[in-house]
């Protein structure tokens, strides 16, 4: 996806427990989309007023939409897709930052402020990395997030084991970069 134009918004819908609700994953924009999705002047709020949607929410890299009775997703998905896309595009367009020389230069669309990156890193750590660290009798935790760099502490069996540092840190960085390109993970 590196060679794509910066206006591209990669998104796809996923089903949730609630059959009326769709979770749109915006994989090009890991930013917190809550504000933009629920903003009264936004295109999604317009669809709520038109009676197509009953509910909207948003978070880091995702927007959920619930279809209003008696509609079905087959009828409204096209319009909702365009509204979600416009919302994400607006957030993405807020700025494009050059990436450091570490990853070979280039640009990253939709750069994440440190506070949002911290939230994202914490949830990904909880979901993907902590179980693995725990299985080996260790623990990994975030110390701080500054300038797109996540500093982690390794505790327990992990600490001092070069292999553990290598695999856990690498794994975490890979998972993080999947949603936040350019983010880095270092050991304290």
């Amino acid at each position: 996806m590196d060679d794509q134009d910066l206006n591209a918004v990669a998104l796809h819908p996923e089903l949730t427990q609630d059959p009326r609700e769709l979770r749109w994953v915006v994989s090009t924009c890991p930013r917190d989309l809550h504000h933009a999705a629920t903003h009264p002047d936004g295109p999604l709020s317009g669809l709520v007023r038109d009676g197509l949607l009953s509910d909207i929410d948003g978070g880091p890299g995702w927007i959920t939409t619930s279809v209003a009775d008696p509609g079905t997703w087959r009828d409204v998905v096209g319009e909702v897709r365009r509204a979600v896309r416009a919302t994400a595009a607006a957030v993405q367009a807020e700025g494009v930052l050059p990436v450091g020389s570490g990853s070979g230069g280039g640009e990253v669309r939709c750069p994440i402020p440190d506070d949002e990156l911290a939230l994202l890193a914490a949830s990904l750590l909880q979901e993907h990395i902590a179980p693995i660290a725990g299985a080996h009798g260790g623990r990994i935790s975030i110390r701080k997030v500054t300038g797109g760099v996540v500093t982690v502490d390794l505790v327990g069996a992990c600490h001092g084991c070069p292999a553990a540092v290598f695999t856990l840190k690498q794994r975490f960085e890979a998972v993080l970069q999947r949603t936040a390109p350019g983010a880095r993970v270092i050991e304290a």
Binding site: L11, H12, L15, V26, S27, W73, V77, R178
Partner: peptide, 25 residues
């Protein structure tokens, strides 16, 4: 398919594919 993938608009198809693949690592 509750929500059919977008096939009519090539740009939308492209974005859907990119997103699914990126999400799946």
């Amino acid at each position: 398919a509750v929500v059919p993938p977008p096939t009519a608009d090539r740009g939308e198809t492209r974005e859907w594919i990119d997103s699914v693949l990126a999400t799946s690592g």
